[in-house]
Design a binder for these strands. Structure first.
Length: 492
RNA sequence: CGGGGCGUAGCGUAGCCCGGUUAUCGCGCCUGGUUUGGGACCAGGAGGUCGCAAGUUCGAAUCUUGCCGCCCCGACCA
């Protein structure tokens, strides 16, 4: 297989697909719309998951697990939620196969084994969880419930893209129950902050926090908060959502509690989730034509050591030195690999680890050992430097932090340069067509206008930024009065 | 669901129009050797239901019919 990537300038989508596959993050599978997440991609997800999990626990949440199957009658209980997801549900109707009498060696669905009630494979778990919470909640003393689950969900998408939109994907979904509206809203915002902190601090992807418009809101939510990121091709990507569900699910599933005054009240709810889609965001925010660029904090491998030798004797000398360096780095908690595989030559390894986005590469030959140095290359800037082996661990440790910051800053600058104000329809269209990125513009606040703009330009309102500056203006499409600008973009 | 394209070794492909030895080439893979500071080279080797089925024919990757699958564009995607 050629390891050459299509360049971003030639075909951005093809570049993305090439990178996912040749970078060995994931592969197509035998199942339409479903991908195989390969070990390297899964290691990346594990690092993201572990960090998020820590942050959830630090904010008082616990993990649990609910069933994959949702009986149709439960699924349909919250009407808006059901309606929103109905078109993309996989449904189990039978529970048995049998030998096909007309087709030797083949199986058929046993018509005798039809389920009394169909089971929906969860596209999201509000229904099954709220049906469960009904049994968990009697008194205000049972609240709040702060539960998260790590799970897979299925959404039968018409068209899929590796990581960005697959029929089955991995995610976490937090589902919380509260005694008061204030507390639930606070939780919704708190988790949005957790997401934004994670995505910015660990994935080095800058995000804009905001609220979705009614059109873009989660089915069944009162308010949907989101973080929006900008990809290198100027398209936006929703990186995470946190929903204030009001009492919609409590009412649908009749979940009430006795308050201190001995009165029955409906519970207030939130849900929030991020998925393996974040990996897509990570790739498209940072990587280049040579391959992945992974932020050190979540990179499966932070440092790779490549020996450069001539003959067996020199290899032994370099092995010894490299192992010593590896031990030093490992002792400092750095994820490091020594690749002395003899099948590939150094040049091949250099290209390979660049493709894989390993932040730091250390190359060392006899020449370096004699001078007590190593050649150190950083993936983000591709700079190479000769660095003393004295204090190398500390040097690398601090370099990794610098790189984390540098990758973030680079993405932040790009993002900031690509938020443009439009004050007329012509400007609006011109920015979308010529620059892409976010367009900050006035909107009259109606769903019809939003819909019309989407039809005409494919741009959607990504969010109404939190703490948005209030400013009188006129809607770019209708000219009707507007109190604030909102962010438009074409999105994934 | 509408429009277009494609199925030949793990990957990418030639051959198909105009049927005829052992199905082409590159990458990758295996063995041995030489190499190793930016994707090495030499020699030898393994690997194929030509998407599936039926038909035409002395003979089908190639022609005919039916089916299956995938990709791209659109519709769809809280």
């Amino acid at each position: 297989m050629s390891k050459e990537l299509t360049s971003r300038a030639v075909d951005y989508s093809q570049w993305y697909n090439d990178l996912v596959i040749k970078g060995e993050l994931a592969d197509y599978s035998a199942v339409r719309g479903c991908m195989v997440i390969k070990p390297y991609g899964y290691a990346l997800w594990e690092n993201m998951r572990d960090q998020l999990d820590k942050m959830f626990k630090a904010t008082g949440h616990v993990n649990a697990y609910f069933p994959l199957f949702v009986p149709k009658s439960l699924f349909e209980a919250e009407e808006k939620n059901a309606e929103g997801f109905a078109k993309e549900c996989a449904v189990v109707t039978h529970y048995r196969l049998k030998n096909d009498p007309n087709n030797k060696g083949k199986l058929m669905v046993d018509p005798e084994a039809k389920l009394e009630e169909e089971l929906v494979i969860r596209p999201t778990s509000e229904a099954i969880i709220w049906n469960t919470y009904k049994d968990w909640i009697q008194s205000y003393r049972d609240l709040p419930i702060l539960v998260n689950q790590w799970a897979n969900v299925v959404r039968w998408e018409m068209r899929t893209r590796l990581f960005l939109r697959t029929a089955e994907f991995l995610w976490q979904e937090g589902h919380t129950a509260h005694a008061t509206q204030e507390e639930a809203v606070e939780e919704t915002k708190k988790m949005l902050d957790v997401y934004s902190e994670f995505v910015e601090e660990y994935m080095a992807v800058p995000v804009i926090k905001g609220v979705k418009t009614e059109n873009e809101r989660f089915a069944g939510a009162v308010d949907t908060y989101c973080i929006e990121a900008l990809m290198q091709d100027g398209k936006a990507l929703q990186a995470g959502t946190s929903h204030f569900l009001g009492q919609n699910f409590a009412k649908a599933f009749n979940v009430q509690f006795l308050n201190k005054e001995n009165k029955q009240e409906y519970v207030w709810a939130t849900s929030w989730g991020v998925s393996t889609r974040l990996i897509g965001a990570l790739i498209m925010a940072h990587s280049d034509d040579q391959g992945l660029i992974l932020p050190p904090r979540i990179a499966p491998l932070q440092v790779v050591i490549v020996p450069i030798y001539k003959g067996e004797e020199s290899k032994a000398v370099i092995d010894a030195k490299a192992n010593a360096i590896m031990d030093e780095l490992k002792a400092m908690g750095i994820r490091v690999k020594y690749d002395n595989n003899d099948n590939a030559r150094p040049g091949w390894k250099f290209a390979e680890y660049e493709l894989k986005g390993v932040p730091v590469r250390i190359a060392m030959g006899l020449r370096d050992i004699e001078n007590n140095v190593v050649e150190l290359a950083r993936r983000d800037t591709k700079e190479k430097a000769s660095v003393s082996t004295q204090g190398l661990g500390a040097y690398v440790k601090s370099l990794l932090e610098d790189m984390q910051q540098n990758i973030f800053n680079r993405a932040l600058n790009f993002r900031n340069e690509n938020i443009r104000e439009a004050n007329t329809w012509e400007e609006f269209v011109s920015i979308l067509d010529n620059n892409a990125g976010f367009v900050s513009a006035h909107w009259d606040g109606t769903g019809e206008t939003e819909e019309k703009i989407k039809e005409m330009t494919k741009a959607t309102i990504r969010c109404i930024p939190l703490h948005n500056k209030q400013e009188e203006g006129k809607c770019i499409l209708t000219g009707n009065p507007s109190a604030q600008r909102v962010l438009f973009a074409r999105a994934y």
